[in-house]
Structure formats: C-alpha cells, structure tokens
Design a protein around this nucleic acid. Structure first.
Length: 592
RNA sequence: CGGGGUGUAGCGCAGUCCGGUUAGCGCACCUGCUUCGGGAGCAGGGGGUCGGCGGUUCGAAUCCGCCCACCCCGACCA
C-alpha cells in the first residue's frame, strides 16, 4: 500500500479526550476514529490487524473442531423472553420495535440465537458433540464506555458455543478452549493469565477469565504467589480467620454522639475495626425469569467493620436479579437509623450476615437510635440472619484459602471469558436430544468469548514505546514499512519503487511511504504506525549499493545489498515469526 | 444514574471573569519557490452555524435559562 493512497493520516497531537495510551496511539497512528461514546470506526490499518487477529482466532478455533457460522445481530425479543433474559437484563440490552410493532433486540450475546438453532438442528445424541463459533458484532449499552477500545458499546466478539451430551463432554470442550485461548493470545503477542471468574449475566456454573495484566486495567485480580490460586476479586475467597474463644458479654447500650462511621466509632470507643459490625443497605430486584413482575426488597448486609461487602457474592447468595445502593427513603421504613444502624430489630428486610460476623463475639453495632450504639452484640443471641454466607471482598494480604499465604492483587483487562453454561439455556429454550435409550435430555452447553477489538487495544498497550506502536509480526497491519528518502525522480525513487514491487511480488505485505515529505516526518510516522520491519532507501546507502533494514524495536539499522534485500526481508520476518512461535507455550490445565 | 470536567476550523489551544471592529495562534490542508537521513524555510491561500435552542442587550463566543454531546471517577462486562 502506498501511503499516498492510504485512507488515513497520522496526527501529530492526540485529541484531548484520549487518556489511555492504546487509545492515544491508535488515534494518532490513524487506526481508529470515534463516532460516538463507545462507538468507533476501524480504518484500513486497524482493519488489517483485526483481520490478522481474527485469522489466528479462526485457526485456533478450527483446530479444536470449531465450525464457523454467523448469526443475526437484530433478533426478535421472543427468544430473549423465553430464556428469561428479557426480564433479567436491564438497559444493557438495547430494545426497539420494528414496523410491525414487534419487540426486537440488538444482540449483546448469542446464547438465545444458538439455542434456537440447536433445537431445530440437533435431534439425536449421534449429532453431538458440536462446536460452533462466529466473529460477530455485538451491542451492549454499557453503563460507561471508556479508555478507547477497551470498553465500548459496539464491538466485535468471537463467541463459540459447545454442545455436548454430558458434563464430561462439556469439560473436554472447556479445557480445549482453555488451552486454545492461551495459545491464541500468545500468538497475538499478548501475555495473559487465567483466573476464576464470576458467571455474571451468562449464568452457568464454572467460568474463567483471561486477563491481560496492566495497571490501567479495570478488573482486580487476586493471586497467591505460593500455590498459584488466582481469581477475580468478584469471586475470590480467602482463608477464614478463627477468632479465639471469648466469652459472650452482656449487651450494653452506650451513647456515641456523632459517631456515624466505623472510623468515628473506633476513635470514640478505642476499639479496633475488627470489633465492630457494619451494615450496608442495598436494594435487590427479585423476580422470576419468564415473568414480568419484579419486586424490590431491602437487603441489609452485615459484615465486620474491617471488611467490605462484595456485591457480586451478595447478589449470588440472595439470588437477586440486580442490586443497587438503597436511598435514605428506602432504608427508613425498616426502622434502621443511618449511621447507627444494625440488624437488631429490623422489620421486613433480608438480613445477610457475613461469616466473619458469626464467628466474632462481642461486637459494637448500631442501636438503630440516633446517637447510640450497642456493645457486646453477638450473632444468634442478639440478632438473626436470613442468610449466613461469605460476602466479603478479599483484599491484598488476606490469607489464601488453599495454602494460607498472603494474597497479592494486580489489575488487568479481561480479553476472554469462558463459561460452562450447562443447561441454563437448553432447559429454558427446549434444546433436547434423544439419547441412546430414546430418552429426551437437555443439551449441555458452554459459551466462550473473546473481545477482538479489546484484544487489539491490549496488544497496542503492551507493544509500544515513546515513539509509537510496535506490532508483533503476527498481527502487524503491514510486515514492512518502506521509507523512501526521495521526492519525485532520482535513484532512491527508482530503487524504492522496484523494491516495493519485488516485495509485493513475493507476498510480503508492505506499506510504502512514497509521500513527498521530509525524512524526519517519514521516520516518525513509521515509528508511530509500528510495522515490525523498516526499510530505508536513500541516496546515501544506495551509493554503496545498499538499502537499510531496521526492526522497529532496534536502535541501529543494518545495510544490505540492494539485490539481496528481498531475501533479507524474508529472513528477518521469518525470524520474528519464529521468535513469537517459540514463546507460545502449551499451558497446563486449570486447577479444579 | 450520582460526582467532576470540557465543548471556538481536521487536531491542539487562546479569547469568555470584565459584552463592543472583518474571531485569533500553532499543526494539518492547497499553490509556488527553496530545502531534503529523525516532525524544514519563505511567500501566498482555503477552511468557523464559537455544541444547540431560547432569553437579556443598541450589540453576545463572552451574561442568564434550558437542552445536547464528549471525557474522567464510582455501580456493569469481551
């Protein structure tokens, strides 16, 4: 591709509203342009690397038996009503009506669509197992898009769906994906770690996320340096701390004027945070799938003062469809007094108590009376719970639940997520097959996603320096960038043209800077765009019968004879590819 | 949705407090000449509903009101 024909230009300055480095660089290098919040156009350069990423994904999916198909983005709401997600999901699912006044949705994922396909096609156990996948556009009306391509509303995702007769089959496909994902991310040059994760709006029982670790990531990961346990904070568990036996003391009401926070309280009473109980008020939305009517209920979560509530865990144990912070008006009717609240004496609420509170005797808790707290509050004796569960957010330093060593935290971006769905969709949508006994059984499903655009952004984030992007060969928009130090006629011009033609001839992908620009401009743009191999063609080295080769990451260029240029280029590219291939390691299975 | 911020040419900004010529500057773009190995110089030129609507005023980018868009921080996810 000649740069004089390329449909984009580099920007010397980045738009002011870009902050993430991947966003700034992709914008400056002319890969992407923004149309609206979380809505982007991919220009030719980005499209090329996207295609390469998708190519790698296809190879890996095909290698584990995947068959590519394509499902519609606009779908009738009926199937979503059948699965129950029409009711379960809120605004993330974009809805509209067609001209016939039918409810329609913009697909945010495709479990319903495959399930519809499956119930039509799959009749017998003889047709299983199966693995289908697609690389398709999705729309999610995210609460907040951010960081360029990292979190957007319209995005393309590779999603695959496995269909099996039993759990063993599902497990096999799940493990296949687990390994394929690790291979594929490393083939793209992106280091990732896999962690146990929440199933979120997919439903199902087991799930892993593939995380690219970066301080700018939005997910919090906990991992144990000694035994390897790693999980998203949403589901992470830590070792239970046993409190040594302490006799239950008599309940005592004390005046604590103005002490409305745990911090105030510890200072006022001179007790550690771990000797207090705090409550968090949330409103849970409850309802049955397949039914329209929802009811809100106040949830009172009780946890020890030194810990925080993990809302994902709380959502699971309460089986609420959604949780949100409660307003003062919603709290008041229960009898709770903000700042001096406790579960003692509350009416009509769902009390969820963290395990930490049930094992900690003689805590200080609110008296539900302005200006007063209660001392020596004990679970069971003084108050009861509707649910006792682990609802604590695990933090750095907490003991690993497997080996007891302190856990560490890091941040990351989720680029892939795999789920063992089981029969969550086949049951609700009637995906059954006849087994060898002639009995109808539900298809066992798995679902596996990769955010393609996000993957591109993460690769950009990972491979860059102060001058610009540095694409791994496997996904670079072009393998070679020719900088022609010539304007119009001359030896350099002729040599560049010839080299460009020769390289294209042998199938090398080359971006040829044939613009009438000064050398500095061309070098800087080459660095910005970040093709792995740069060739400089200029009078200076041409006099020695040479052109110059430089890897994007290298400092110095090396001269090679003009006649040998093509073979040198192929060698260098092969070398880069080999280097990348050798970094692809087969990973061990996940730990159960 | 709550909190914070920004909207002036394709991009980066000044001007807005304190209303008053044809609304500026840098980059980018077009023409010409020169230059030519790490973001060149000179000369000339094109490009603006000052986010939108309404109001105040003799007069609004500037003051007032409403609305919209985008970004950042918190609850969601690939």
């Amino acid at each position: 591709m000649r740069m004089t024909n390329l449909f984009s230009q580099t920007l010397r300055e980045a738009p002011a509203d870009a902050e993430a480095m991947s966003h700034i660089l992709l914008l400056r290098a002319g890969f992407i342009r923004q149309l609206g919040s979380g809505i982007f156009s991919y220009l030719p350069l980005a499209k090329r690397t996207l295609d390469k990423i998708e190519g790698i994904i296809r190879e890996e999916m095909n290698a584990i038996g995947g068959q590519e198909l394509s499902m519609p983005v606009v779908q009738p709401a009926d199937i979503w009503k059948e699965s129950g997600r029409w009711q379960e999901l809120d605004e993330v699912l974009a809805r509209f009506k067609d001209r016939g006044d039918h409810d329609m949705v913009l697909a945010m994922t495709f479990e319903e669509a495959v399930s519809d396909l499956v119930r039509g096609e799959i009749k017998s156990y003889r047709q299983l197992p199966q693995l289908v996948y697609q690389i398709q556009t999705k729309w999610r009306d995210e609460v907040r898009s951010r960081a360029g391509l990292i979190r957007v509303r319209e995005f393309t995702m590779k999603d695959s769906y496995s269909l099996d007769v039993d759990g063993d089959g599902l497990d096999r496909q799940y493990r296949n994906h687990y390994r394929a994902y690790h291979r594929l991310f490393s083939r793209c040059g992106l280091p990732t770690v896999s962690v146990e994760a929440d199933v979120g709006l997919m439903g199902g029982q087991l799930s892993h996320e593939f995380i690219y670790l970066t301080p700018d990531g939005e997910d919090m990961i906990l991992h144990c340096p000694s035994c390897g346990y790693s999980a998203n904070q949403e589901v992470a568990v830590s070792a239970k701390v046993e409190v040594e036996g302490e006799e239950q003391l008599e309940l005592e009401k004390i005046a604590t004027p103005g002490a409305e926070t745990i911090e105030d309280l510890t200072r006022f009473l001179q007790v550690p945070e771990s000797k207090t109980a705090k409550v968090v008020f949330l409103v849970g939305r409850f309802g049955e799938r397949q039914e329209e009517a929802d009811t809100d209920k106040l949830i009172v979560a009780v946890i020890r003062g030194d810990m925080t509530v993990n809302e994902v865990k709380l959502g699971h144990v309460t089986e609420a469809l959604a949780l949100r912070p409660a307003s003062a008006d919603e709290i008041a009717p229960s009898g709770a007094v903000a700042g001096y609240a406790s579960p003692i004496g509350l009416k009509g609420v769902l009390v969820v108590v963290d395990e930490s509170v049930t094992t900690s005797p003689n805590l200080v808790a609110g008296a539900n009376e302005e200006g007063y707290h209660l001392k020596n509050v004990n679970y069971d004796r003084d108050f009861e719970a509707d649910l006792v569960a682990d609802i604590a957010a695990v933090e750095a330093g907490d003991g690993c639940s497997k080996c007891g060593q302190p856990l560490e935290t890091s941040r990351g971006v989720e680029v892939g997520h795999i789920f063992q769905l089981g029969t969550r969709y086949s049951d609700s949508m009637g995906c059954t097959f006849l087994d060898s006994q002639g009995k109808a059984r539900s298809v066992i499903m798995g679902s596996y996603g990769i955010g393609v655009g996000r993957l591109l952004a993460c690769v950009a984030e990972q491979h860059r320096d102060e001058h610009g992007l540095m694409w791994p060969v496997s996904v670079a928009p072009f393998q070679v960038h020719i900088v022609a130090l010539a304007k119009g006629e001359g030896a350099a011009q002729a040599a560049s043209e010839k080299l460009y033609g020769d390289l294209k001839e042998v199938g090398v992908e080359v971006l040829y800077d044939d613009r009438r620009e000064n050398p500095g401009v061309k070098f800087n743009d080459a660095d910005l765009i970040g093709c792995p191999l740069r060739i400089t063609v200029g009078e200076r080295s041409l006099k020695k019968g040479e052109i110059e080769l430089k890897l994007r990451g290298e400092g110095e260029a090396t001269g090679v004879p003009v006649e040998e240029a093509v073979s040198h280029v192929r060698q260098r590219l092969a070398g880069l590819q080999a280097e990348l291939d050798s970094a692809v390691v087969e990973v061990a299975d996940y730990q159960d």
